[in-house]
Every structure is written in C-alpha cells, then in structure tokens.
Nucleic acid binder design. Structure first.
Lengths: 218, 218
DNA sequence: TCATCATTAATCAACTTTGACCAAGTTCGC
DNA sequence: GCGAACTTGGTCAAAGTTGATTAATGATGA
C-alpha cells in the first residue's frame, strides 16, 4: 500500500535517525490502524523495502544488552524526493473519501500555505464532480427492475449516504483552505522548525508502548 | 481482504451457477473498485481461494469455440454458512467509516427487517461511542507542544472532519432503521424471491463489458 | 482489405499485508 | 519470592493484491 510507504517516509523524515520500533510506536499512537488500516507487520516490511529501494539507508544496527538488535534508519535524497512526489500525488489526486487523503494530510505542513490552499480548492472541485455523478446516478434511475438503470432501494440508500459524506468533505475542504490562508493551521516555516525541534517529540515516543498507548509513569 | 471474499460469496450466491467473468463484470458495474477498493485480479484469486477452502465448488469448465475456458462455480453449504457469518460480522461489528460496512450493506436484504433495524441501531450506538472518543480527544488536548496530549492544529482539523463524518453516519443509521421498519427498503421475502427471479438480472450482466460499463447496443 | 483496437476469460510474478511467534528481560499481583 | 503477564525489537510463512500479459476473435475504420 502507498499509505504505508508515505507514513514511514514521513516519519523517518521527521525523526531520523530512528529505528523501526520508534516508528511503530509513533504510528500506533496516531491510531493509524483504525483510520488508515496499517498494521504492525507492514511497518517493518515497509522499512526494509524502502531501504532496499534506496529511499532509506541503514545507519547502524544497535545492540543494547541482550535485547533484540535495533536497525536505525535515515532518509536518502532519493527518499526525500519520493516523499514529496507521493505526498503531492495523494493530496492532489485522491477525490474519494479514502484513507489516502487523510494519511497524506498528516504531512500537510510540508507544503506552503499557498500550495495547501490551492490543493484544497482543487480537491473541493474534484469532490463536487463526484457529487454530481452520484446525484446523476440517483436521479435518472429507472423503476423497472428489468432495465439496466434500475437500482434497488438499499443501493440508493447507500448512494445517499455517500452523497452526504461527499458534501461534508466539500465543505471541510473549502473551510480549511480559508483557515490555512489565515495562518490558523500551521506556521509556514513549520517544516524545518519542527524538524530541528523534534527532540522533545522523540522523547515523548519513549513513553509509548507497542500499541501507541501512553504509559502511566516512568 | 474480507471485503473481497464477502462480495464474491454474495454474488455467487445470487447468480449461481456462475463463472468468474460474470462475477467480475457485475462487481465492476457496482463500482467496487471506487468505493471498496477491489480490483480485477483479486476477484479471480478470491474465487480460487474460496474454492480451495471449500466455500465454492467448481461445477464445470466450459469451452466455447477457442475462447479462454470458463470456470463455473456454485456455492457449497459451508460457503453459505460462512457468507452469513461474515455478513453479520461486518454489519454488526464495524463502527468506523470504512468500506467494510458498505460492502456488507450490499447484501442487507438477506436479513429480516427486525434484524436489519436492530443492527442499524446497534451501529448507531457504536458510532456514538466513537463520536464521544473523538470529542474527548479534541477537548482535553493540551496547548503545550511538549506535553503528550498536545495535538498540532492540522491534526485537530482531521479529527473535526472525522467527527462530522461520524455524525452523518449516526443520523443515516437511525433514519435507515426507521425506513426498514416501514418496509421502504426491501421486501422481507426479497432474499428468496430475488434469488429465484435473478434470471433477468443475469441477462443484464451480458450487456456489461469488463469494466462494468453498459454497452450501447447488442 | 489490412492494420488496429476492443473483447473475452483468465493467468502470473512481483509485491504487500497479516498476525502469530520468538527469546531475553522486566514488572506486577499476591 | 513465584509465576503470570508484559515489554522489546523484530522475523517469518501464509495469504492477499495488483496490473501486465496472453491468445483467439470480432468490430472499426481508412
């Protein structure tokens, strides 16, 4: 899945140098299993595959006591290029209400306000098209079950649900474009600033368990 | 993916005896690639796996002229049991706004009005719980980036989007439960009736191409 | 009439996902 | 102070997905 690759690339980019278990814990704390369908096994596979493809590089393999060895990764230049390509692809391209957009949205502060707002307005347009298509399907449907344009009632109920979801998504995109332009969502320099200041974030990961839950006390 | 299995089981159940290409065309005409993420290759794999697992049985392999041979399937009793298990599991179990529920919803006329309405009210309950959790996350979030309950603004924007989607889903579930009880969505005898009368539906499939599009003229 | 393209019904290799499992160490309840 | 349960950091085989490809035929069009 491309969502897995994007999540891993994005996180290694923030946290590098970083080992697999930390990436795992951070992603689990985001709840990606719930809203993006990414499971633990996929993350280790993804790290290896990205390393084999040259998007990540292995910095070292650490051994602490007799614990399992940690593999520490960093991003390559090619990886950074691929991250940007993938991010744009998912943000600009996916109209449907799928996890793809939400996953890519996690890394939206990488974009300038200008680009982010443009992307959201483009998305609103795509969604309006999708809305129109759904509406068309609902409107000129036949009532004769033998005709090809006939739709069973429970199917039209599903289409109505999808229609409402699409409307929500259109509104949110338009509103959020405005909020970004007003500077409400993130600082434009956020990308570099947060990458430099990611240290206390990294400390936070140490207080997560393998399911991404916060631990009571150290 | 379980969605793939459920879709195939459901369709073979309606249309049996049926060959893979007809299942493919029907599913593509439903647009499952768009809203359920099921691609052509997965369908043939699914048919084979289900046959290997004993949920489907191969009736015969047809050869028309020199065309590729068609493998014709029917459902076994075990397959029917698994279909019912899977259908209930996906309808009663999945709270999140995922394709799982929508896929299972395709076969809701298999259930009695009573069970369908109960299922939808149960779902509304699960969704209200999810709504509460999202809200809690949004409310007691800290504003200090070094604290573990801090959420960046673009993440809270995503949560707000998810909240609205959840609300839509709650409303739709409640409304649709009422509509089903009023007998608006399907006849209670629909399952057997339509299975017997599936013949003109089967004819309709012959006018679809491999992408599920209706062809202009025969 | 000949080249080109779509249709039909599938197969296949490459890739990805999944979740059970491992093995040493640590913490917890009682 | 003992066994149960969890943590750590990962591996692995089995399963699932993907989309390019096949090979014969029918339709289209210049």
């Amino acid at each position: 899945m491309w969502t897995t690759r994007l999540l891993i690339l994005g996180l290694v980019r923030w946290l590098q140098p970083v080992h697999g278990y930390d990436v795992l814990r951070e992603l689990m704390s985001w709840g990606v299993a719930d809203w993006a369908g990414v499971q633990r096994g996929s993350i280790y596979h993804g790290l290896k595959k990205l390393a084999a493809d040259g998007d990540l590089a292995v910095v070292k393999v650490e051994q602490v006591d007799n614990r399992p060895a940690r593999t520490v990764y960093r991003m390559t230049e090619a990886g950074d290029r691929h991250f940007h390509t993938l991010l744009r692809e998912k943000l600009w391209g996916s109209a449907a209400t799928s996890p793809d957009f939400l996953v890519a949205w996690s890394f939206v502060p990488v974009l300038s306000h200008r680009e982010a707002a443009a992307m959201l307005r483009n998305r609103a347009g795509l969604l309006r098209d999708a809305y129109g298509e759904l509406q068309a399907k609902l409107e000129h449907r036949g009532s004769d079950p033998t005709e090809p344009d006939f739709l069973p009632a429970h199917v039209t109920a599903r289409l109505q649900l999808m229609l409402r979801h699409t409307q929500i998504e259109i509104d949110w995109s338009a509103e959020t474009a405005k909020r970004i332009e007003a500077g409400e969502l993130y600082d434009e320099s956020d990308d570099r600033r947060t990458r430099d200041g990611a240290s206390h974030w990294r400390d936070g990961i140490q207080r997560l368990d393998a399911h991404g839950r916060h631990r009571p006390k150290p």
